[in-house]
């Protein structure tokens, strides 16, 4: 499904070069549920941005769903995002000026679907996340958990091949977080590949496997644990 070979992303300011992602190699199989964890600043968001074609990268190659997406132009990237990728953001990113229905409608509009098909898809996905009755509410009238479910509906409405979730429960209390996570798990079980960025090892446990990112590299978890232990030890002594 997703295949990254030695992908690097460098942020340049006029003083320093920062490797946000360095020599990253990773393969995710079709239908997998992968958690990406790591401390903040480790490069996991950059990884997600690259995986979701939100940012370009300098080196390496990336194949998504069998297509080489290294160095594609902006319009093509937009089309792939629209058709193959569903996004779930930490802060939901619902458009406050639009009601629930219109929010879910946004990606469908960009795909250029007919009014009837859009309405059917919107109603179906809102039903799937249990918010069909709230179609005419504005985001500000919903709880955080409800908002995130709307965001999930928006991601699903386009029938994506892969779902990218960025700390999807970061702004939610634990009860709501669990509901959202259950939903994501359901989606994965229905066949959609899921990559979820989280710094919470608890959440990561729901995934088939966890990838650790540290200083922009995929790290062996054991090595990371060992290093953490060392650091802890050093602090103790």
């Amino acid at each position: 499904m997703l295949e990254m070979q030695s992908v690097s992303k460098i942020y340049r300011t006029h003083l320093v070069e920062t490797h946000a992602v360095r020599d990253l190699t990773l393969t995710v199989e079709d239908g997998e549920f992968v958690a990406v964890s790591g401390p903040s600043g480790s490069g996991k968001t950059t990884f997600l941005n690259i995986a979701g074609l939100l940012e370009a990268f300098e080196e390496g190659s990336y194949r998504l769903d069998g297509v080489d997406v290294s160095g594609i132009d902006d319009d093509t990237a937009s089309r792939i995002r629209n058709e193959k990728i569903g996004f779930i953001f930490q802060s939901f990113n619902l458009i406050p000026d639009l009601d629930v229905f219109d929010n879910v409608d946004v990606p469908l509009r960009y795909r250029g679907l007919g009014a009837r098909e859009r309405r059917e898809r919107i109603t179906a996905t809102l039903e799937r996340v249990g918010l069909a009755s709230r179609a005419n509410h504005y985001p500000s009238q919903l709880s955080g958990g409800q908002q995130q479910r709307v965001a999930i509906a928006r991601a699903l409405a386009g029938d994506p091949r892969i779902l990218l979730a960025d700390e999807p429960t970061g702004n939610l209390d634990s009860l709501m977080a669990r509901q959202v996570l259950d939903l994501i798990q359901d989606i994965n079980e229905a066949g959609t590949t899921v990559i979820m960025v989280t710094h919470d090892p608890e959440l990561a446990r729901r995934a088939h496997r966890t990838i650790h990112v540290l200083d922009g590299r995929v790290t062996n978890l054991d090595a990371w644990v060992a290093r953490e232990a060392m650091v802890a030890q050093a602090a103790d002594s």
């Binding site: 939100l54 990113n93 000026d97 960009y110 386009g158």
Partner: peptide, 16 residues
């Protein structure tokens, strides 16, 4: 700004 970014992430092209 945030909304524009979100729309772009959801597949809006520049011309959209």
């Amino acid at each position: 700004t945030k909304q524009i970014g979100t729309r772009r992430a959801l597949g809006a092209r520049r011309r959209d």
